[in-house]
């Protein structure tokens, strides 16, 4: 009875709540993430920008795959002016002509960025700017794992049998991880068979879909070693857990969060100003100190704590990250996902 009444109440509420109209006020609408990434963007970019330029910014929260779906639906009449999307999705958005070219004259801070953080279309125009690199490296329990790991192959060590976690293809870095294992075993993005063979022999505790799932595995001791995000590892360590991060000698897998101007925005000048601030040295320094992401803007001097925790290690640079060729990965994604489901999960 209670169930039925509850349902009736729910129905009533669902019918009565009117559709929320897209923000039409002055100011910008920016799509970005929730959680700690969204917090960092809000604190390091949105708040100081609004204070400085006097332009209000309304957040439109969502993960990259949801943001791109919104942009697809709003094509031609976007309600979103500026959008953050991860590497991988960013390429899809550019290919579908959802994002506007960036004019370096209107966004002068582009000149102070590292070349790896500026993304060009085949015609030479810029479609995205990086606001920070993250890395998938080896996260391990420092109490259970005596010798700090140094290579991806340490995950196959029989001491950790059944207590390993790696991303599933549903996770943003899942397919890049499979491709990396393929490359290291004589294959590549077009030939991932060797990776499937290797992964079949990996005695995992779980394949994680979400970063939070992996966090829980490490927290509960279900996993003691795995391929996981550096930033998430540091967050666990800050909670007092015995968690360490190691950059594998083959290179940690790099990804980044990128800012885009939505094609057809009616507030192009404001969006350009916002983007210029997002890649400024102040914003990049704050993002690095707050999230330990690797800055894509030159001349960032992070705090010593943040420097120790950079995704490429304290003394490295973006060159130490294995960056993915997302166009190739996107083209092979469906096939690799299916092979993984069939050969590795369904074994």
């Amino acid at each position: 009875m209670i169930g039925r009444m509850g349902f009736a109440v729910l129905l009533g509420v669902a019918v009565m709540v009117p559709g929320v109209a897209p923000a039409a006020a002055q100011g910008l609408t920016a799509a970005y993430y929730g959680g700690s990434w969204g917090e960092a963007i809000h604190k390091c970019i949105v708040e100081p920008f609004t204070k400085q330029a006097g332009i209000a910014v309304t957040p439109e929260p969502g993960v990259s795959s949801v943001t791109i779906a919104k942009l697809q639906q709003q094509k031609g009449h976007p309600a979103i002016d500026v959008a953050w999307m991860d590497g991988g999705i960013s390429e899809l958005a550019a290919a579908e002509d959802l994002v506007a070219p960036v004019d370096p004259k209107a966004v002068p801070n582009v000149a102070d960025m590292i070349p790896e953080g500026v993304y060009h279309k085949p015609d030479g125009s810029i479609y995205a700017l990086s606001t920070g690199f993250y890395a998938l490296g080896i996260i391990y329990n420092t109490k259970e794992v005596k010798n700090p790991p140094s290579s991806w192959w340490d995950l196959w060590n029989s001491d950790y049998s059944g207590a390993v976690t790696v991303p599933s293809p549903t996770n943003a870095m899942g397919v890049p991880f499979i491709v990396e294992i393929a490359k290291l075993s004589g294959g590549g993005v077009d030939n991932v068979d060797p990776a499937m063979k290797k992964l079949k022999t990996l005695k995992v505790s779980s394949f994680f879909d979400t970063s939070g799932g992996a966090d829980n595995s490490f927290q509960s001791g279900e996993a003691i070693i795995g391929a996981h995000y550096a930033q998430a590892g540091w967050a666990l360590a800050d909670k007092g857990l015995p968690i360490g991060y190691a950059v594998p000698k083959e290179g940690a897998l790099g990804g980044d969060i990128r800012i885009h101007i939505v094609k057809g925005t009616s507030k192009l000048a404001e969006a350009e100003k916002f983007m210029n601030y997002a890649v400024s040295k102040d914003a990049a320094t704050c993002m690095t100190d707050f999230l330990y992401v690797g800055p894509a803007t030159k001349g960032v001097a992070p705090t010593e704590k943040a420097r120790q925790r950079l995704p490429w290690g304290p003394n490295g640079s973006v060159k130490n990250l294995a960056l993915s060729d997302w166009n190739k990965i996107n083209a092979a994604r469906a096939k690799i996902t299916e092979m993984f489901n069939r050969d590795v999960v369904g074994r």
Partner: peptide, 25 residues
């Protein structure tokens, strides 16, 4: 299922999510 299986069992809803959320087919 997605959390409790640890990705070692895949049910239909997980395949559907994969197609919509990561493969984009």
């Amino acid at each position: 299922p997605s959390i409790m299986s640890g990705g070692k069992q895949v049910v239909m809803s997980m395949l559907i999510f994969q197609q919509y959320g990561s493969v984009f087919d």
